[in-house]
Design a protein around this nucleic acid. Structure first.
Lengths: 229, 229
DNA sequence: CAGCCAATGGACCGCGCGGTCCATGAATTG
DNA sequence: CAATTCATGGACCGCGCGGTCCATTGGCTG
């Protein structure tokens, strides 16, 4: 799963000079900074559209209109068509959702860190216009129609959950969690609560379910703590 | 949201006699037992297809092929077209998923009952061929495209969660949960964990996440118990 | 038997959408 | 100033899909 070249979009107007083709996995056509900016613009806008309406309900014309681009540009930057674009959107959202949890996501080795993480999640999802999980909904929809992309998204979710598991492992090592606590299982439960909270947040159009879900998940973790507080 | 006339499909071949139009809300055309059976067959098969592939990715031709019916029958029994059919599928699935949790769903007023409920959920979702929540995935997909149906599904989910809340209320009344435990919030958290577990169960193609999610949710509940066990 | 109407079959239609193509504009390079 | 190549615009196409229509069948009723 290549991480979708994503230069700072602000670089737009400066004089265009070819960038070295060094890193890219398979850059179908070489991109100038201007091109890269356009591509980034498309991905970002398309991601929002898909987030709001779902993959299947978002047409290429919607995206074209939403980004002030032409049909040919879509296929210029995403030769694989809609599938290709969806892949780019997926990794963009993965990155975005991870960034929103930083830096607490990297710690998660103390009870305070988990509380910070909870706050970061609530702050991020509470602030955006439309509810719903950018990744979970994608995964769910793609599962039944595009197994390849679905696997990519699933891998991305596993990567995400890996941070939780890593934190839990460190909690065990630090003696904050009982030695018999299994980070794998606990991370699954915690992550599931998060995803479920986001799902309900979308259907109920309220942040409440997410709060309740995270509180429940943290309570479940604390139930495995060593000291009685 | 009418509960989709659903007579035992086995009644198919017996001599057809008009059924009284007593109950129906707006039976576009009166149904003979044979017709009702056909309608039920369509809904059930369509529900499975939608569960496996999602609403958007399931075409009417798929359903036609999967039920050995003709296009005209689809519109005969569901005059509103695909939207209409999706509505019928939604209430069918709601009923089915509730039935699978009976009778424990109606109790949930003791710790034993919650354990039974957990077991019933795992048994049901562990047995079916394809993973994923019939209701949650629907709700998520419809949220961005068909607000009307989405609201129906959301209501159905709230109804479902109502059973959890009712049980929790009884737990508080019975002195099994601390008086300050809020059934509304706790039911949200529990339900979110369940939905998240189902979502992960779909993307990871394993029952493990659901187990972990339910265990976590129950641990969170027990953290609010009155007696130290 | 005659009449009626649900049940069924399946050809047909319009259009929205993903995808293709080519022409032109705008940079950069020698 | 060519020559090259990316960037962009937008007409165009084929088809899949939701939806319509009419013809036929078959079972019940009087």
């Amino acid at each position: 799963m290549g991480p979708t070249t994503r230069p700072t979009p602000s670089a737009g107007t400066e004089s265009a000079r070819r960038q070295t083709p060094s890193a890219g996995a398979e850059p179908a056509t070489r991109l100038t900074p201007k091109g890269a900016a356009t591509r980034a613009r498309i991905v970002e806008a398309a991601a929002d559209l898909v987030l709001a309406r779902g993959v299947g309900a978002t047409t290429l014309d919607d995206i074209r209109a939403g980004t002030q681009t032409s049909k040919s540009q879509l296929f210029h930057y995403f030769p694989g068509g809609k599938t290709d674009l969806v892949g780019a959107i997926a990794s963009f959202q993965s990155q975005r959702v991870l960034d929103a949890q930083r830096p607490s996501l990297d710690a998660l080795d103390s009870w305070q860190a988990w509380d910070d993480w909870r706050a970061a999640i609530l702050a991020h999802y509470g602030s955006q216009a439309h509810w719903g999980c950018p990744i979970g909904a994608l995964a769910s929809e793609l599962a039944g129609s595009d197994p390849v992309r679905a696997a990519e998204v699933a891998a991305s979710m596993d990567h995400w959950r890996g941070y939780l598991r890593a934190g839990l492992t460190r909690m065990v090592d630090a003696g904050l969690l009982r030695p018999d606590a299994d980070p794998e299982t606990l991370s699954l439960g915690t992550f599931a609560a998060l995803q479920g909270g986001l799902l309900l947040t979308q259907t109920m159009e309220s942040i409440k379910p997410l709060e309740a879900a995270l509180d429940g998940a943290l309570a479940a973790l604390r139930a495995r703590r060593t000291a009685p507080d």
